[in-house]
Design a protein around this nucleic acid. Structure first.
Length: 723
RNA sequence: GGCGAGGUAGCUCAGCUGGUCAGAGCGUGCGAUUCAUAAUCGCAAGGUCGGGAGUUCAAGCCUCCCUCUCGCUACCA
């Protein structure tokens, strides 16, 4: 933490074709918000920047499916996400969108700068699918076909959503244009590529040692292990970095600012991170700042908060872009979080597993302090260094134990006593203030933990130390037992000192808790009759403590006690518990449905979301060309260095064949031997992993991707024809 | 198969460059207390630090092998 620096903190730009779930929040937005609020508290100059990522084919395709315009989609989700963040207290200084004209200009200027500079971009000719009916080239996502991996007939040109494989359009079987439905043809087109391959060497040094252009740019020991590990894994990959295509044929996005580039836009991955820059520009323009102060020069501390799926992009690709451009500062840290699971499984929108941010706000509408309750649960179990699991039971525990029993109860105890004894006025402590504050200053160990934890992005530790402070308060009360001495002597100076000191601790807590639970901070401040926490207050508090100054003065009037956190496990009021129970019940229903669907519909009738469309019509001759034979597997072994492949010996009755089959994930060699199968016997041989495969075993596949052998009746031996 | 990150008390996790590193929180048991939201405070529980071997005077912390989990990646006619 350095007050002379300009901090620019970003959270990953959410893609504006859907809502965000709690995992996103815990991964990239909440940690950034905590960090930023802390920096503000310490009086640092910080800009917290984010915005919607609104380009890309996924949005246009979705629009087409739903019969609406891309603009309608992005407007909807931009508004939803922006508003939800606000409600949860994610305190962006500016939340922009990549459809903004300023962003288009900025991204185009970035591209042109790279062109002018030379050597960073190159134009390449390649063959791409072209839809003749619509007279346009097809973006990867506009091509659908059969996945070569799992035979899903609805794989996209860039990815199969069923098996998750990364694909290229050329790999698809039976490609179809999503525009016309026709089979596209190959035509030559040109695209621009970013020469990422030229940046590998300095990137490796930069990541490993933190040295950039011969100067120490950052301290690599401050980076998370898994971040550095993953980057080096990429950089040291045998192939090295490859040039990356940065333009696409699409009508939704930022036009490529080059003559003859009609119909081409910047690939969304290229324009999106530039959104950090354009969003900063807009913020600066709106607030009388100079945006360049936050992006250029040695005085910039750029920090990207992201999820681990974004590590390579933010640590390798974007820095390479920035360096290639030349004007910009590189990130000082990329504290990526891992993934948050939900009750033991991955979040899955299609299965209804998990809860989205806005859903939470809706379903917890009647839950007091819902924003901080959620923030706290996510912080206490944040996936900082390894995947974590969100559980409702833990949500309850963290809320009841930490916030209600420990923190809230401490404040309540002190307020009750003070109102009873002194009419809510802070009593006058003994005059040797130095002695009195010793108790508070003794917290210094905890305070140091708090600062160090936040500055090293260990927010769950920092949260623990916050609770540690109210624990100190509870312990102090317990030991001083002012209620006991008051009964002995209502004028007891010890009682006055004790409660006076307790208010010093509460004031401290009101400031320290602000990064984590800002709504609660404001409520505590109100109880204390103080204004909300302001920029720089954290710094002032530390200064006061170090110089043994009061945080709250004698005679100060505080408010009536008020329950800050009504416990969820409350024997008089089950309403909060019921909200939780409803959530848990929803999950049980999902699990029950899954269980019954397995039991009640035994083996057959797998209902694919949409039936597999029939392939193109063929003639008998086409079929007759295939020589399918009954056969028996006589031996099987795994192929080394391949997870999916088995090498099979197949008996055709009149000859033996060797066949390589991608079934190793479904069957062990042992259970496959003796299996009677159908073999496509006249398929041209092909080498797989160095083994000659002479034919192909026919398999049936169900909706879950499970495989089953196809065979003739028991009495039918090997070598028989199939027609 | 390759690469990366992990496998530490019932649960969730801390443990920096090897020598008070065997810890914290929660749960559990016992005790104290009554100002408070059936809250608080204290004490206790003995986990071969995934398994095995090695380096060292000394190893969760270094090396090698094995194993499990997660992620990326290769093979998939």
């Amino acid at each position: 933490m350095d007050k002379t620096k300009k901090y620019l903190v970003t959270s990953a730009l959410p893609y504006a074709n859907g809502a965000l779930h709690l995992g996103h929040l815990a991964g990239a937005y909440l940690p950034a918000d905590i960090y930023v609020r802390y920096l503000r508290g310490m009086g640092c100059d910080v800009a917290f920047i984010c915005g919607s990522d609104e380009h890309g084919a996924a949005i246009t395709i979705r629009a087409k499916k739903e019969g609406i315009t891309p603009q309608e989609i992005i407007d909807k989700y931009h508004a939803l996400n922006k508003q939800t963040f606000e409600q949860l207290g994610i305190s962006f200084d500016h939340y922009d969108r990549t459809s903004a004209p300023l962003h288009h200009e900025t991204a185009q200027a970035f591209f042109k700068k790279l062109i002018e500079k030379g050597g960073e971009l190159e134009e390449r000719l390649s063959e791409q699918y072209f839809d003749e009916a619509f007279q346009q080239f097809l973006a990867d996502r506009y091509i659908m076909g059969e996945c070569p991996n799992c035979a899903n007939p609805e794989a996209y040109g860039d990815q199969c959503e069923k098996c998750g494989a990364t694909l290229s359009p050329m790999e698809l079987k039976n490609p179809k244009s999503m525009l016309s439905g026709a089979t596209p043809v190959l035509r030559e087109t040109s695209h621009w590529y970013f020469r990422l391959d030229k940046h590998g060497d300095w990137l490796r040094d930069w990541i490993k040692t933190g040295v950039l252009d011969g100067q120490q740019h950052h301290d690599p020991s401050m980076w998370k292990n898994h971040v550095i590990g993953q980057c080096l894994s990429w950089l040291n990959d045998g192939e090295g970095l490859q040039p990356r295509s940065i333009t696409r044929d699409l009508d939704w996005g930022i036009p490529v600012p080059m003559p003859g580039a009609e119909g081409k836009v910047l690939y969304v991955w290229f324009d999106a991170p530039i959104g950090y820059i354009s969003s900063t520009k807009q913020w600066a323009a709106d607030n009388g700042k100079n945006w360049e102060d936050y992006w250029k020069g040695d005085n910039v501390e750029l920090i990207h908060f992201i999820g681990k799926d974004n590590i390579v992009f933010h640590c390798i690709v974007f820095p390479a872009m920035l360096k290639a451009h030349g004007d910009y500062a590189l990130p000082i840290n990329v504290p990526a979080n891992q993934f948050l699971n939900f009750e033991g499984r991955k979040f899955s929108k299609s299965k209804g597993w998990g809860i989205e941010q806005h859903e939470y706000l809706e379903e917890f509408a009647n839950f007091p302090n819902k924003e901080d309750a959620l923030r706290w649960a996510l912080i206490r179990n944040m996936p900082e260094n390894k995947d974590a699991d969100f559980k409702w039971d833990e949500f309850v525990d963290f809320y009841d134990k930490d916030l209600a029993d420990n923190l809230g109860n401490f404040i309540n105890r002190v307020l009750v006593l003070t109102n009873n004894y002194y009419g809510g006025k802070l009593p006058e402590p003994r005059h040797d203030a130095g002695n009195i504050l010793i108790d508070v200053v003794a917290l210094n160990g905890v305070l140091t933990d708090y600062k160090e934890a936040i500055e090293s992005f260990n927010f769950r530790n920092a949260a623990q130390s916050l609770i540690g402070i109210s624990s100190v308060g509870n312990l102090y009360l317990q030991e001083q037992k002012p209620w006991f001495w008051w009964k002995e002597n209502p004028e007891s100076q010890d009682v006055k000192n004790c409660l006076f000191n307790c208010f010093q601790i509460i004031t401290l807590i009101s400031v320290l808790c602000e990064p984590f639970i800002p709504y609660t901070s404001a409520r505590i401040r109100r109880l204390l009759n103080l204004d909300d926490v302001q920029s720089g207050d954290l710094d002032k508090i530390f200064f006061s403590l170090n110089n043994v100054r009061f945080l709250l003065s004698p005679g100060h009037q505080v408010g009536q006690p008020e329950i800050l956190f009504a416990k969820i496990h409350d024997r008089n009021d089950k309403s909060r518990l019921e909200i939780i129970e409803r959530q848990k019940a929803k999950l049980k229903i999902i699990m029950a449905n899954e269980a019954t669907s397995v039991v009640e519909q035994p083996p057959i009738i797998p209902q694919p979301s949409s039936p597999i469309p029939l392939k193109e019509e063929i003639q008998y001759d086409d079929f007759a060309k295939m020589d399918i034979r009954t056969a028996t597997i006589t031996a099987a072994e795994r192929i080394p260095k391949a997870d999916k492949l088995l090498k099979l010996n197949v008996d055709l009755g009149f000859e033996q064949r060797t066949v390589v089959s991608g079934i190793a994930e479904h069957f062990t060699p042992e259970e496959v031997v003796g299996q009677r199968v159908l073999l496509l016997a006249n398929l041209a041989p092909r080498k797989l992993r160095g083994v000659d495969s002479q034919g192909m075993i026919l398999m049936a596949e169900n909706a879950e991707g499970k495989l089953s052998f196809v065979q003739a009746g028991e009495a039918f031996g090997p070598g028989l024809g199939v027609k």
